[in-house]
Design a protein around this nucleic acid. Sequence first.
RNA 1: GGCAGGGUGGCUCAGUGGUACGGCGGAGGAUUGCAAAUCCUUUAUUCGCGAGUUCGAUUCUCGCCCCUGCCUCCA
Length: 471
Amino acid sequence: MSLHVYNSLHRTKELFEPLKPGKVGMYVCGVTVYDYCHVGHARVMVVFDIINRWLQQLGYDVNYVRNFTDVDDKIIQRAAERGIGIDVLTNEMIAAFDEDIDSLGCLHPNHEPRATAHMPEMIAMIEALVEQERAYVSDSGDVLYAVRTFDGYGQLSGKNIDDLESGSRVDVDDSKRDPLDFVLWKMAKPGEPAWDSPWGAGRPGWHIECSAMSCSHLGDTFDIHGGGMDLKFPHHENEIAQARAANGGGFARYWLHNGFVNINAEKMSKSLGNFFTIREVTEKYHPEVLRMFMLGTHYRSPLDFSDSALDAARAGLDRLYETARRLHCEMPDVRCLMDDSVTSHLTSHVSRLPPHFVAAMNVDFNTPEALACLFDLSRLLNKGLDAGEDVSALVDQFRAMTSVLGIVQHDVESWFKSGDVDAARIEALIAERSDAKKARDFARADAIRAELAAEGIILEDSPTGTSWKKT
RNA sequence: GGCAGGGUGGCUCAGUGGUACGGCGGAGGAUUGCAAAUCCUUUAUUCGCGAGUUCGAUUCUCGCCCCUGCCUCCA
């Protein structure tokens, strides 16, 4: 069974064949670190985390690179507003970013390069473009890329260069030879952070950062380049123009783009102001619920964000945890199987996964279908447990699936008992209620249950005793 | 205007040339002292509208309507 991926470059699903057998180089556009990440950013991280995990499951040695853009206009502006240096700001935001993606259960990429640490590579690439006369120094002193010198321009985004010009909403800048030309190197204004270059002190344009960092870590030609849909044009188009020209043809072979997170059918974005940061959401919902929510929709489709959608995701996840808890409590023999999750993403589970699940993931990472398999298995497990059958063979599958998807990765007991609760008191009340039940004093038993319910504590009686959970 | 991607049950989300996966929610039942959890059954004569191709289309083709995104920084 082989992996097929949707390649934005050709707008079709294609058989995935890496450049070097057994190895995959993947570059994903990260974030500009001037503020906290919102749910839209979270989606990119989760989507490519799943892709990374699945590639590893298939046995590939994945070199996953995701950058930080740690110098640009917004960063400079924000740092100035706060009266701090840009490095103070970016370090703070990178630390916050790490917390956020850790909470979402995303594995770290192999490399997380910062733009400011790759100036020589960027300058070298720009020099190559200048030498080829594809780049020029404008009247303002900025170095610009002459888009019309690159024949394939528009291939990725399906745009025609002349349509772009006629429909251009860009204000014509006199220093540009062509309105579509974009900045490779921007001259520093007084007081702005700057790096030396053959064209004077300044900073790189956004697009050259990614071209230079990806090639520097993965080579001129590599397998996968990913990012949000909105990056297709102009960012990825510009990256292609820069890198292919500078490298003499090669660059990313498969382009993967994830869909947006919408709110009320509108794209979540900073400019519209309709965004929620990851930390805002995870104050109210467990981060794994956010991950679950994202897994429920194919990565290329739009994803509508709402409280009711998160509630539904949580209810579904709770169901999965309920199964996990039953396995844990009712089958002490399998407890060890349930406890190996922390490192189990590192090993290949493909042989333990049902064919349906593997097939779903192999067709462009179809997580909704993979989740459907998981829910089917969950039901099977519950049924077996209800019937008192030995389900240990299925536990292995359950563990493998959840591990690949990165859900049900938390302690099953604490999942239902998070928050500030007095466990000892609850246990005492449960014991009292059990006595009352034995004495057939159901009025007292129900009163205790109602008292706890008022605090959000739900009791569940089972043949093996009473357990509780926090709603 | 150009380009890209969509419209599937109350909500959400997969999928397929032969009447549709899963989740959430609803209804009924089993279980329970009663609940909760779990299980079972049920909840789309139907996949935006019209036409065409076909033995047969939600799935292919064409037209139309509607939605979103990109075309400016944007994950």
